[in-house]
């Protein structure tokens, strides 16, 4: 597989074309807006927590294929997880896309479908596309609905 084929795997192209969990969320307990000022990508993430557990996550926004597919696959991956589980998955995902995840942990067991983002680390310019939705999700989880949504930008 060429670098380009690995970046644009069919799962990513599919989620780009038909993003899952796309649209507003009823009864959201937290929301956040993320922006990538460099390329104009925008994503809003809304979460509904039940206790410590993520009962529902949805997103809206526009952006490149990597950012859209990342948001879509993220919402599927974190559904039903606790805050702590989300946090640990985020760190694993971040290590994957920045190329710092030990090869032994680059498995479907550890990452689930998120493994399709393994090609991103070869394209350092695109890391922020892949991580924007995740940073925004973490801000939405920190948003307790008494403060207004925090703007998020990527590193």
């Amino acid at each position: 597989m060429s670098d380009l084929q690995e970046l644009y795997q069919s799962v990513i192209l599919d989620h780009n074309r038909s993003p899952r969990n796309f649209g507003p969320l009823d009864g959201a307990t937290g929301t956040a807006d993320g922006k990538n000022p460099l390329c104009g990508d925008q994503v809003s993430v809304a979460v509904r927590l039940e206790g410590d557990r993520l009962d529902a996550v949805r997103f809206t926004g526009s952006g490149c294929a990597i950012s859209k597919a990342s948001a879509s696959l993220m919402t599927a991956a974190v559904q039903g997880k606790t805050r702590e589980e989300v946090e640990s998955l985020f760190h694993r995902f971040h290590a994957l896309v920045t190329g710092t995840l030990p090869p032994a942990e680059m498995t479907k067991e550890q990452l689930g479908q998120l493994i399709v983002f393994s090609g991103v680390s070869r394209y350092p310019i695109r890391v922020k596309c892949a991580s924007l939705a995740w940073h925004t999700l973490r801000a939405a989880l920190a948003d307790d609905a008494t403060t207004s949504a925090m703007p998020v930008t990527t590193e």
Binding site: D3, L4, R17, C39, D41, G63, A65, Y123, R126
Partner: peptide
């Protein structure tokens, strides 16, 4: 159509 400029730039760079 259907290809975001940012994705285009990556593919063209290749």
């Amino acid at each position: 159509a259907d290809v975001h400029p940012h994705d285009l730039a990556t593919i063209l760079d290749e």
